[in-house]
Write a protein that binds this DNA or RNA. Structure first.
Lengths: 303, 303
DNA sequence: CCGCGGTGATACCCGCCAGGTATGAGTGCC
DNA sequence: GGCACTCATACCTGGCGGGTATCACCGCGG
């Protein structure tokens, strides 16, 4: 007998992809369309997954599909598992590449001078592996690293979630408030956090959550730094960011140091246990750069 | 047309399982046996995986199979990916369990009194979720957590690798050398690391690596604590362990504090982003226990 | 009250591919 | 050279993933 029905064999990534599509859209028809298959096989595959797990994943009431509690768990876990599988494929292909490169991902606009210095120093070093730079928004770095689309990221502690990542500190700095140049706050030489939170005419902007929805609040909804920069220039909001990120400051902006904001450390971050010779080279360059910066005597390097 | 050959669709866990079996054993026939299939389909599946990735994974020379560099990468990544998929299934089933439990895994024999105290305190707390205790050897905890076979572990910093895990400190303590009672070192009231490393007649035991092989060295090969305990009693080796682990000390053993050994912190550890209400309860109990211990005034609690 | 649009489930068929067996090809060893 | 061993190839089979057609159920509006 050939291939007797894999009773409790193991979940296939195809099933996880199908489940994830339905869980994302909560609609079998549209999920099938996104997957490029018809709806009936999708329904059957999901039911089979439920049977295999022995767990109901969706409540199919009249007029609608909803995740059960177990379904919520699988929705979260499936993302991680699929990322891990995707990372396995990407990293394997990378390992076979005869001309190795490093892909570095960073938030667009953040730590620009630091990155420039790092890349310059790395380029000068012997047997330098070429570095591809990928720019992203917000806290996308962790996901990009997890799925193997980048080898290393510039991230910020304690702003970013560094769980599961190994890190190497690069630079610690204070934060500044970016306010409209025309606003009274712009005249101050320094402010405190209490001065800048809950300013009635400058409410903090709201970023989308991972699921795409926005938290409540008075501030404007933003999805990119460009939007944010313009909103500040228009006098609609303010923000508090690491001092070096003011590289993208507009003439209509003013930067005021926030004396009691938490210090922010820019770190090199990579998935735990993902060491490679090429990455080691970059880390070494970063460590040397940091020593040089300190030897130069400026605890707060100019940016 | 139905199911046109998934060209660059995505890797299936079946393929990763097959590849892993071959990579583990470096032998198609035995790998097929382990998988419960015949050898030809296995060969074909691996070739298909290589074609799909566009990468050679094995060097099939005359008389033998060896991993390529890319194969080594996939071997490591596939373990993680399969663990993630397995964890997704386990955690989903757990979430559907109407009577939730927590599974805690710890090295057999380590931190016994601490664990006992934690379980007692947790059992006394209201709405206490039952805790299953799983015992393992060595550094198996991280893998067990990763594949979802346990929710939380007792681990030791800096001994264990805590990458990718969130932790909560429980207890910091010094280390002791466990030596044969008849050995001259047993008469000392305290020793230093230099006293106990490279003692000619008491070479440090060698534990297997993750792949099952042993590092070189003069010490005996061991795979379990019971072996180790008896080897010390027989006067063949010594070991340096956290003070509280001497719970499994034999009459033929002597424990001597090692003054300059690094302090060891017992921590509660769980995979990042795996919070649950039941786990929060245990963590709270642990935090309360820690406060009580400090309030009792004994910085180094008796064990 | 009865269509009507829209949803997921069911019924049924088809063909690809994972699985099997048999055998070949290459190599080390006696 | 024959033998043992190992992986690759050839070829067949049937289970399952895919498709289309249709049903069952609901909410809604005339």
């Amino acid at each position: 007998m050939s291939a007797y029905a894999r009773v409790e064999d193991g979940i296939e990534t195809r099933e996880l992809r199908y489940f994830t599509a339905v869980a994302d859209l909560l609609h079998f028809g549209r999920a099938a369309e996104r997957l490029g298959i018809a709806q009936p096989p999708l329904s059957r595959a999901v039911r089979q997954l439920e049977r295999r797990l022995g767990v109901r994943l969706f409540d199919r009431d009249r007029r609608g599909v909803a995740l059960t509690e177990a379904g919520e768990v699988l929705h979260r876990e499936a993302r991680l598992a699929l990322s891990a599988v995707e990372a396995a494929a990407r990293r394997t292909r990378r390992a076979a590449d005869p001309a190795p490169t490093i892909t570095l991902v960073t938030k667009a606009g953040a730590s620009h001078a630091l990155l420039q210095g790092l890349l310059d120093a790395h380029g000068r070093s012997r047997d330098a592996v070429p570095v591809r730079v990928e720019l992203c928004e917000l806290g996308e770095q962790a996901g990009i690293l997890r799925r193997g689309a980048a080898d290393v990221a510039l991230m910020h502690r304690p702003v970013d979630d560094l769980a599961g990542l190994d890190t190497q500190d690069l630079l610690t700095e204070g934060q500044v408030a970016i306010v409209p140049a025309a606003h009274p706050l712009a005249a101050r030489h320094r402010v405190t956090m209490s001065d800048v939170v809950d300013v009635p005419d400058l409410p903090m902007a709201r970023w989308p959550r991972l699921d795409g929805t926005y938290p409540d609040g008075p501030g404007p909804e933003v999805r990119s730094q460009a939007q944010l920069a313009q909103l500040v220039a228009l006098g609609r909001t303010l923000l508090v960011i690491p001092a070096s990120s003011r590289a993208w400051q507009w003439p209509e902006h003013a930067a005021v140091p926030v004396t009691d904001a938490p210090m922010v450390t820019t770190v090199l971050a990579w998935p735990a246990h993902t060491g490679s010779a090429a990455l080691d080279g970059l880390r070494e360059t970063a460590a040397a750069l940091r020593r040089d910066t300190f030897r130069a005597g400026s605890g707060e390097p100019a940016v």
